[in-house]
Structures are given as structure tokens and as C-alpha cells.
């Protein structure tokens, strides 16, 4: 449920996540200083072709740019008011291209691969007290508990509707948060029972 991931495998899926992230970083650095609208539109056309090369399903994903429509319209309008239409086209094309390129990486890389590729970077933060294994546990736990908390909220709203006949109010937030604290106690206990962070020979390091 929670992934932007594109189910059907394409050639871009098979590329290592690290390479894709590096390519994205390099492309950003190259694209940002470009001002020539013709170059930017040509490059954008190239990105669209890239989507097309991944098949119909991926191509349909281009529609997600619609969620940026209001924003893009405002940017275009501002540039038209303050400058030339060439500047407006360049600004919109640059932004759309950056968003599409980033989405291209997200939709062809699993969360596990993304985590694995970014973990070495995060390991650099180790001197600041960040433990990579604890971090990956935290990520898994969060993904696990998002649906649990949503279900908890849903159940509460339902009980509220059943008893009042009205729409759920933010007054439900108080008991919901209090309940979350109780769940935290259970989760901490379950982690303890499974041996997380108990000092032991031969076990994994938790630090």
C-alpha cells in the first residue's frame, strides 16, 4: 500500500539504486544553471521519451504532474508578468523535468533498495549517534504501524458517528494520542521480548 513503486519490472528497475541516485544528482547539477528554453524543452522531451521506453503503465504516470498544475500555472503567470514568455517556458520546463526525473527513480526502485543505497550515506552520521540498524528498524516499524494507527483512528471515528451521528471531530484526537502512548508501551515491550537492545554476546550490535 505505501509505495510509489511501479509493479511491472522495466530496464530501469534492473539498474542499481546507487547508480540511479548518482545520475539524478549529476543531472540536477547540470540542468539547474541552464537558461535556454529550447535546450530545456528538448531535454524535457527526452525525459518523456524515457517514460515511454518503460511501457504504457509508466507513461501513464506522467499524469501525476497534474498535482503540480496550480503551482506551475502560478510560476508561468509570474514569469509572464515580470519577464518574457521564453523565461516562463524555461522555468516550467526545468521544474517539470526535475520532478519527473526524481519520480523516475522513485518508481523503479524498491524501498529496500533505496534504503540499502542510502545507508552508507547515513552511516556517515554515525559519529553523531545514528545507528544504521536501529534506523532501518525504525523505518520498518513506521511502515508497519501506519496502517495500525489509521485503523485505530477509523474505529474511533466510527464509534463517534454511531453515537453522535455527526462527523468525526478533532476532539477524538485527544484519546487517540493517549491510546498511541499505550501502544508505544506495548511496542517497547515486544521489542524487549525479542531481544532488541539487550546486551548479549553473538547478537547484533545496537549501540
Amino acid at each position: 500500500m505505501i509505495s510509489n513503486y511501479l509493479g511491472r519490472e522495466t530496464w530501469l528497475h534492473r539498474m542499481p539504486a546507487g547508480a540511479k541516485l548518482a545520475a539524478l544528482a549529476i543531472l540536477s547539477v547540470v540542468i539547474l544553471p541552464v537558461d535556454d528554453w529550447r535546450a530545456l524543452v528538448a531535454a524535457l522531451a527526452g525525459v518523456v521519451l524515457l517514460y515511454a521506453s518503460l511501457g504504457k503503465e509508466a507513461f501513464k504516470r506522467l499524469a501525476m504532474i497534474r498535482s503540480f498544475a496550480v503551482l506551475l500555472a502560478i510560476i508561468a503567470a509570474l514569469h509572464l508578468l515580470a519577464g518574457t514568455w521564453q523565461e516562463a517556458v524555461a522555468a516550467v520546463a526545468r521544474l517539470v523535468m526535475m520532478i519527473l526525473l526524481a519520480d523516475l527513480v522513485s518508481m523503479t526502485t524498491t524501498m529496500q533498495a533505496m534504503m540499502a543505497a542510502l545507508t552508507p550515506v547515513l552511516t556517515l552520521l554515525r559519529p553523531f549517534g545514528l545507528n544504521p540498524r536501529k534506523l532501518s528498524l525504525a523505518v520498518s516499524l513506521a511502515i508497519r504501524f501506519i496502517p495500525v494507527l489509521s485503523a485505530n483512528w477509523e474505529a474511533r471515528s466510527e464509534a463517534w458517528r454511531a453515537r453522535t451521528g455527526r462527523r468525526p471531530s478533532f476532539r477524538l484526537l485527544g484519546p487517540f494520542i493517549a491510546d498511541t502512548f499505550r501502544i508505544a508501551d506495548h511496542v517497547a515491550e515486544a521489542l524487549d521480548a525479542r531481544g532488541v537492545a539487550r546486551s548479549r554476546r553473538g547478537g547484533r550490535e545496537w549501540g
Binding site: I183, H186, E189, A190
Partner: peptide, 12 residues
């Protein structure tokens, strides 16, 4: 094994 599975399953 705890009473409520929802509170002890740690992974997605």
C-alpha cells in the same frame, strides 16, 4: 506471545 498481535508484530 502477547495478547494483542497488533502490538507485537514489528515488521510490515
Amino acid at each position: 506471545l502477547f495478547q494483542n498481535p497488533d502490538h507485537q508484530i514489528l515488521f510490515p
